[in-house]
Protein backbone atom coordinates (compact mmCIF):
# COMPACT_ATOMS: atom_id res chain seq x y z
CA UNK A 1 0.00 0.00 0.00
CA UNK A 2 1.20 3.44 -0.83
CA UNK A 3 1.22 6.03 1.89
CA UNK A 4 2.19 8.81 -0.46
CA UNK A 5 0.31 11.90 0.56
CA UNK A 6 1.37 14.30 -2.16
CA UNK A 7 0.34 14.20 -5.79
CA UNK A 8 1.93 11.19 -7.51
CA UNK A 9 4.67 11.58 -10.03
CA UNK A 10 3.39 10.36 -13.38
CA UNK A 11 4.46 6.82 -14.20
CA UNK A 12 7.85 6.81 -15.82
CA UNK A 13 6.64 6.88 -19.40
CA UNK A 14 6.88 3.46 -21.04
CA UNK A 15 9.98 3.57 -23.16
CA UNK A 16 8.14 4.85 -26.24
CA UNK A 17 10.38 3.28 -28.84
CA UNK A 18 10.23 -0.28 -27.53
CA UNK A 19 6.61 -0.52 -26.71
CA UNK A 20 5.65 1.39 -29.83
CA UNK A 21 7.42 -1.30 -31.82
CA UNK A 22 5.62 -4.02 -29.90
CA UNK A 23 2.32 -2.29 -30.52
CA UNK A 24 3.03 -1.98 -34.25
CA UNK A 25 3.87 -5.66 -34.52
CA UNK A 26 0.81 -6.56 -32.48
CA UNK A 27 -1.40 -4.55 -34.83
CA UNK A 28 -0.25 -6.77 -37.67
CA UNK A 29 -0.63 -9.93 -35.66
CA UNK A 30 -4.07 -9.21 -34.24
CA UNK A 31 -5.92 -7.11 -36.79
CA UNK A 32 -6.80 -4.56 -34.09
CA UNK A 33 -5.47 -1.01 -34.32
CA UNK A 34 -3.09 0.68 -31.90
CA UNK A 35 -5.85 2.50 -30.05
CA UNK A 36 -7.69 -0.73 -29.39
CA UNK A 37 -4.54 -2.49 -28.27
CA UNK A 38 -3.51 0.29 -25.90
CA UNK A 39 -7.08 0.48 -24.66
CA UNK A 40 -6.56 -2.91 -23.05
CA UNK A 41 -3.89 -1.49 -20.74
CA UNK A 42 -1.89 -4.68 -21.33
CA UNK A 43 0.85 -3.48 -23.69
CA UNK A 44 3.61 -3.45 -21.10
CA UNK A 45 2.53 -6.74 -19.53
CA UNK A 46 2.40 -8.62 -22.83
CA UNK A 47 5.65 -7.07 -24.03
CA UNK A 48 7.41 -8.19 -20.85
CA UNK A 49 5.81 -11.64 -20.91
CA UNK A 50 6.98 -12.23 -24.46
CA UNK A 51 10.55 -11.27 -23.63
CA UNK A 52 10.53 -13.42 -20.51
CA UNK A 53 9.13 -16.43 -22.28
CA UNK A 54 11.28 -16.54 -25.43
CA UNK A 55 14.20 -14.25 -24.69
CA UNK A 56 15.48 -11.16 -26.45
CA UNK A 57 17.56 -12.92 -29.15
CA UNK A 58 14.57 -14.94 -30.37
CA UNK A 59 12.39 -11.84 -30.38
CA UNK A 60 15.03 -10.04 -32.38
CA UNK A 61 15.10 -12.81 -34.98
CA UNK A 62 11.30 -12.85 -35.07
CA UNK A 63 11.22 -9.10 -35.80
CA UNK A 64 13.77 -9.49 -38.58
CA UNK A 65 11.83 -12.37 -40.12
CA UNK A 66 8.63 -10.38 -39.93
CA UNK A 67 10.25 -7.40 -41.63
CA UNK A 68 11.61 -9.70 -44.33
CA UNK A 69 8.07 -10.96 -44.90
CA UNK A 70 6.95 -7.41 -45.54
CA UNK A 71 5.29 -7.21 -42.14
CA UNK A 72 2.83 -10.00 -42.96
CA UNK A 73 2.84 -12.69 -40.26
CA UNK A 74 1.34 -15.18 -42.70
CA UNK A 75 4.53 -14.78 -44.74
CA UNK A 76 6.79 -16.02 -41.95
CA UNK A 77 8.74 -19.09 -43.01
CA UNK A 78 10.89 -19.83 -39.98
CA UNK A 79 8.96 -22.18 -37.73
CA UNK A 80 10.24 -20.71 -34.46
CA UNK A 81 9.36 -17.17 -35.53
CA UNK A 82 5.96 -18.32 -36.67
CA UNK A 83 5.38 -19.97 -33.32
CA UNK A 84 6.33 -16.76 -31.55
CA UNK A 85 3.81 -14.97 -33.76
CA UNK A 86 1.15 -17.47 -32.70
CA UNK A 87 1.99 -17.04 -29.04
CA UNK A 88 1.86 -13.23 -29.04
CA UNK A 89 -1.43 -13.28 -30.92
CA UNK A 90 -2.87 -15.87 -28.53
CA UNK A 91 -1.76 -13.63 -25.68
CA UNK A 92 -3.65 -10.65 -27.05
CA UNK A 93 -6.77 -12.61 -27.88
CA UNK A 94 -7.14 -14.50 -24.62
CA UNK A 95 -4.70 -13.09 -22.06
CA UNK A 96 -3.12 -16.55 -22.06
CA UNK A 97 0.44 -17.43 -23.06
CA UNK A 98 0.00 -20.74 -24.91
CA UNK A 99 2.20 -23.84 -24.97
CA UNK A 100 4.82 -23.58 -27.69
CA UNK A 101 5.45 -26.42 -30.12
CA UNK A 102 7.80 -28.95 -28.57
CA UNK A 103 10.29 -28.24 -31.31
CA UNK A 104 10.18 -24.50 -30.65
CA UNK A 105 10.53 -25.04 -26.93
CA UNK A 106 13.57 -27.21 -27.52
CA UNK A 107 15.08 -24.91 -30.14
CA UNK A 108 14.93 -22.02 -27.71
CA UNK A 109 16.51 -24.07 -24.99
CA UNK A 110 13.87 -22.91 -22.55
CA UNK A 111 14.20 -24.05 -18.96
CA UNK A 112 10.73 -23.01 -17.88
CA UNK A 113 7.86 -25.51 -18.23
CA UNK A 114 6.05 -25.42 -21.56
CA UNK A 115 2.58 -24.86 -20.15
CA UNK A 116 -0.12 -22.30 -20.77
CA UNK A 117 -0.87 -19.67 -18.17
CA UNK A 118 -3.10 -16.65 -17.73
CA UNK A 119 -0.83 -13.59 -17.48
CA UNK A 120 -3.03 -11.87 -14.88
CA UNK A 121 -6.72 -11.56 -13.97
CA UNK A 122 -6.83 -8.31 -15.96
CA UNK A 123 -5.36 -10.04 -19.00
CA UNK A 124 -8.34 -12.38 -19.16
CA UNK A 125 -10.73 -9.46 -18.87
CA UNK A 126 -8.99 -7.59 -21.69
CA UNK A 127 -8.89 -10.49 -24.14
CA UNK A 128 -9.63 -9.34 -27.68
CA UNK A 129 -11.44 -12.53 -28.70
CA UNK A 130 -14.66 -11.20 -27.15
CA UNK A 131 -14.50 -7.99 -29.13
CA UNK A 132 -14.45 -9.82 -32.45
CA UNK A 133 -18.18 -10.49 -32.13
CA UNK A 134 -19.15 -7.45 -30.00
CA UNK A 135 -19.17 -9.60 -26.90
CA UNK A 136 -17.56 -9.34 -23.51
CA UNK A 137 -15.56 -11.73 -21.34
CA UNK A 138 -17.78 -13.80 -19.06
CA UNK A 139 -17.61 -12.33 -15.58
CA UNK A 140 -16.63 -8.81 -16.63
CA UNK A 141 -17.74 -5.78 -18.65
CA UNK A 142 -21.43 -6.68 -18.35
CA UNK A 143 -23.64 -4.84 -20.82
CA UNK A 144 -26.71 -4.39 -18.57
CA UNK A 145 -30.02 -6.01 -17.63
CA UNK A 146 -32.00 -7.23 -20.59
CA UNK A 147 -29.38 -6.39 -23.19
CA UNK A 148 -29.03 -10.08 -24.06
CA UNK A 149 -32.50 -9.85 -25.52
CA UNK A 150 -31.41 -7.36 -28.17
CA UNK A 151 -29.84 -8.47 -31.42
CA UNK A 152 -26.06 -8.18 -31.15
CA UNK A 153 -24.66 -5.12 -32.91
CA UNK A 154 -24.29 -5.78 -36.63
CA UNK A 155 -26.97 -8.48 -36.62
CA UNK A 156 -30.03 -8.04 -38.81
CA UNK A 157 -33.08 -6.69 -37.01
CA UNK A 158 -35.34 -9.38 -35.70
CA UNK A 159 -38.54 -10.01 -37.67
CA UNK A 160 -41.64 -9.02 -35.73
CA UNK A 161 -43.13 -11.89 -33.77
CA UNK A 162 -46.44 -12.63 -32.18
CA UNK A 163 -46.85 -12.57 -28.41
CA UNK A 164 -43.82 -14.20 -26.80
Amino acid sequence: MDSQQTAPQPEAADDPAECAGFVDVSVRLTGFDAFELRATGMVRAYHDTTLEQVGRPAVGRFLEDLAAAGGDPEGLTDEVSRDIARAITHLWYLGVWPPLARSTHAALGREKPNTAFVVSPEAYVEGLAWRTFHGHPPGAKPPGFGTWSDPPPAAPARPAEGPA
Partner: peptide
Amino acid sequence: DTGAPRPPGVFGTRLRETLGRDVG
Protein backbone atom coordinates in the same frame (compact mmCIF):
# COMPACT_ATOMS: atom_id res chain seq x y z
CA ASP B 1 -0.62 -31.87 -28.31
CA THR B 2 2.60 -29.84 -28.27
CA GLY B 3 4.31 -32.59 -30.24
CA ALA B 4 1.84 -32.45 -33.10
CA PRO B 5 2.72 -30.52 -36.26
CA ARG B 6 1.27 -27.01 -36.41
CA PRO B 7 -0.72 -25.76 -39.40
CA PRO B 8 0.36 -22.27 -40.52
CA GLY B 9 -2.60 -20.51 -38.95
CA VAL B 10 -4.14 -17.15 -39.80
CA PHE B 11 -3.38 -13.73 -38.36
CA GLY B 12 -4.45 -10.10 -38.44
CA THR B 13 -7.72 -9.03 -39.94
CA ARG B 14 -8.34 -12.49 -41.32
CA LEU B 15 -8.17 -13.97 -37.83
CA ARG B 16 -10.29 -11.23 -36.35
CA GLU B 17 -13.03 -11.49 -38.97
CA THR B 18 -13.12 -15.28 -39.12
CA LEU B 19 -13.33 -15.56 -35.37
CA GLY B 20 -16.04 -12.92 -35.18
CA ARG B 21 -18.07 -14.49 -37.92
CA ASP B 22 -17.81 -18.02 -36.59
CA VAL B 23 -17.99 -17.57 -32.84
CA GLY B 24 -20.67 -14.95 -33.36
